[in-house]
């Protein structure tokens, strides 16, 4: 009698597990539950990171003064170079906007970003996904693009309040709409499971694509904003028996190495001094962050340290002229006249 009771309880647990698996795999109903329950394991995750943080703290204290000075010098040099390039980009951006206006094409805004840190704590060591230390509490939403300093890293697939899981571009389930930077040809990249390899499927044998071509996000599909580098074509082979080319590409982002990543809010305002002259509303990504929390996340104040404490609305009202015009735009005006 007792045995049948044990068996019955076992079957109930199995049934509940299967139910949960199916619900979580096919619907979004369990997202709030996961977010809440995720809080209970947060102390555990922090505890596990204590040794690493301590090691980092020690190594930071152990840096000699000359090393530090060298580092500062390097960073200043890098900063100068980047500022110079940014000036050019400001000018080009203004020019681009004006030309798009002439074509009456829709404008593309800059994207707001937030720094997050990869925490190398997961049950499986060789999966193509990582955990980052920002979650729903920071405004992260499922489907959010994740970048590093070089290019696209992946997208957020699951979130809890304090952490989120990012699926890398090399995940076999991950497909990104891209285009060739050289000729605008649209294509897709899909992950292979190897950190160095992406597949570019479904391109005809007579397609104009060759080794060294840069693939950037095309913005189609609405998840990833336009224009971020994804991969460089490494090898194009023709197999006469197959209708499509065999193309392998290498991700641009440093997938195995980056500790810091950037979470991007496509189309949201980046920063006060990068604000374009007039900004039109940009369509929201299809997976709206509001659908997860039932409240507006994008307009939370003080999400980004760079915004100087000002809560810039995510989408500025149309035809709001901003007084802050960068000097480069005057320069562009002058050249146009």
């Amino acid at each position: 009698m007792q045995h049948s009771g044990v068996n019955l309880r076992f079957l109930v647990y199995v049934f509940v597990s299967v139910l949960i698996i199916n619900m979580d795999a096919h619907t979004h109903a369990l997202a709030p539950v996961r977010a809440l329950l995720g809080l209970t394991v947060a102390p555990l995750q922090e505890l596990v990171l204590v040794p690493r943080r301590f090691a980092e703290w020690v190594s930071l204290r152990a840096i000699s003064e000359s090393e530090l000075l060298d580092k500062v010098e390097d960073l200043q040099a890098a900063n100068l170079t980047l500022s110079a390039r940014l000036q050019r980009i400001d000018g080009l951006d203004a020019e681009n906007r004006r030309l798009r206006e002439l074509l009456s094409a829709s404008r593309r805004g800059l994207d707001r970003v937030m720094l997050a840190e990869i925490e190398n704590i997961s049950l499986e060591p060789f999966t193509q996904s990582v955990l980052v230390n920002k979650g729903l509490a920071d405004g992260v939403y499922e489907g959010q693009p994740v970048l590093d300093s070089r290019g696209v890293m992946g997208q957020v697939v699951r979130t809890s309040y304090l952490k989120s899981a990012v699926s890398l571009v090399t995940d076999p389930g991950q497909t990104i709409p891209v285009m060739l930077e050289r000729n605008g040809l649209r294509a897709l990249t899909s992950g292979t499971g190897s950190r160095q390899l992406l597949d570019v499927p479904f391109l005809d044998r007579n397609t104009d694509i060759r080794r060294g071509d840069l693939l950037i996000t095309s913005g189609l599909g609405g998840r990833f904003p336009y224009g971020y580098p994804v991969a460089i074509v490494r090898e194009v082979t023709v197999d006469v028996n197959e209708p499509f080319l065999n193309i392998s590409a290498e991700p641009v982002a440093r997938l195995g190495y980056s500790r810091e990543v950037l979470l991007a809010w496509p189309g949201a305002e980046p920063d006060a001094d990068l604000t374009p002259v007039d900004v039109q509303p940009i369509p929201q990504p299809p997976v709206s962050p509001t659908s997860i929390l039932g409240g507006s996340i994008l307009t939370l104040p003080g999400q980004i340290p760079e915004s100087g404490g000002e809560s810039a609305p995510a989408i500025l009202p149309q035809s709001t002229p901003q007084p802050a015009v960068s000097p480069n735009q005057d320069a562009v005006n002058a050249t146009r006249q």
Binding site: I20, L44, L123
Partner: peptide, 12 residues
């Protein structure tokens, strides 16, 4: 919960 995969996978 620690894995951030599909819920219930390890539970089963």
């Amino acid at each position: 919960l620690l894995d951030y995969g599909i819920l219930g996978k390890y539970a089963l």
